[in-house]
Simulated scan of single mutants.
Amino acid sequence: MKHLEEKTLSSQQIFKGRYLKVEQDEVQGPDGKVYYREYILHPGAAMMIPILPNGNVVMVHQYRHAVKQVMLEFPAGKRDRGEDSLVTAKRELAEETGYLANEWKLLTEIHPVIGYSNEQIDLYLAMDLSRTEQRLDQGEFLEVIEVAPKELMTLIQQGKVTDVKTQIGAFWLDKILRGEWN
């Protein structure tokens, strides 16, 4: 696949926000011509699928300004600089939901928006949950709810859960609960 790669000739930061940066690269394409590529640098994130002893999953309702909607999602959060994604997952699960997990399993890593960002989200199964204190960040507003996995799949099928990381996590969970994947 080397014949499809582009060679970066120069790179410049064209925007720097609180945690996102936009880069513009000048590249030489496989055809030898020069092109410009703009993309968002993202610090990475972790998403958790917390499973309660009753088989339900812990989810959150959260307003997402970019789409101007309250979304139903699995809890997730961005990595702090130099932080291992499992540390991120444990921290964010406690902060957002008020749960701790004694058992963790990395399921996969995803790149949800490869056309314009390098964002990578590591998806974890969080099991053997216990309650702790919810500690939301300043300006973070969430509602924590329990959802049965079957109900979650119905909501996805009805177009009521459109967050891609949550959909991917739900499909992984469905395969695991059916015994099709370990």
Rank of each mutant, 00 (worst) to 15 (best):
G82Y: 04
I110N: 08
V70G: 02
Q158N: 11
Q62P: 00
W172T: 00
L123E: 14
K165S: 15
R135S: 14
L100I: 09
R79K: 13
D122Y: 11
W104G: 09
Q69W: 01
L9N: 07
Q138A: 07
M59P: 14
L86M: 08
L86A: 04
I114P: 15
G139F: 13
G98K: 10
V27M: 00
F141K: 11
K175P: 07
L107R: 07
E96C: 05
L4H: 01
L177M: 07
M153I: 13
I145V: 15
P50T: 12
G32A: 12
L86Q: 05
P112F: 15
Q13T: 15
R135P: 05
Y63N: 03
L142I: 09
Q13H: 00
Q24E: 03
E95P: 02
G159R: 04
D25M: 08
N118W: 11
N118F: 05
E119I: 03
S85R: 02
R131S: 13
Q62V: 15
D80R: 14
K16P: 00
E109W: 00
A46R: 13
K16H: 03
N118S: 10
E151H: 14
I145N: 06
Y116K: 05
L129N: 08
Q62G: 07
Y116N: 03
G44M: 15
P43V: 09
V147I: 10
G82L: 08
G17R: 08
I114N: 05
L41A: 03
E73G: 01
K105S: 07
L86K: 03
A46D: 12
Q138F: 09
S85G: 03
E143I: 02
I14H: 02
E6F: 06
V67R: 08
Q28E: 15
R64N: 07
N56G: 08
L125A: 13
L136G: 02
E23Y: 14
M59D: 08
M48V: 12
L123P: 06
R18S: 02
Y99L: 04
I51G: 01
L41V: 04
R79G: 10
S85H: 08
E26A: 05
Q69P: 00
F171V: 12
R135G: 04
V164D: 02
R79P: 00
D84L: 09
H111T: 04
E180I: 11
Q12Y: 01
L125I: 12
R135Q: 14
L155A: 00
E103V: 08
D163L: 10
A66N: 10
R135N: 11
V60R: 13
L41M: 03
E23R: 09
K90S: 04
E119H: 04
A126T: 08
Q69S: 05
W104I: 10
R37P: 01
Q138V: 01
V58K: 09
V60I: 13
G115K: 08
R131D: 04
F74P: 12
I176S: 12
R135A: 13
V147T: 14
Q28A: 01
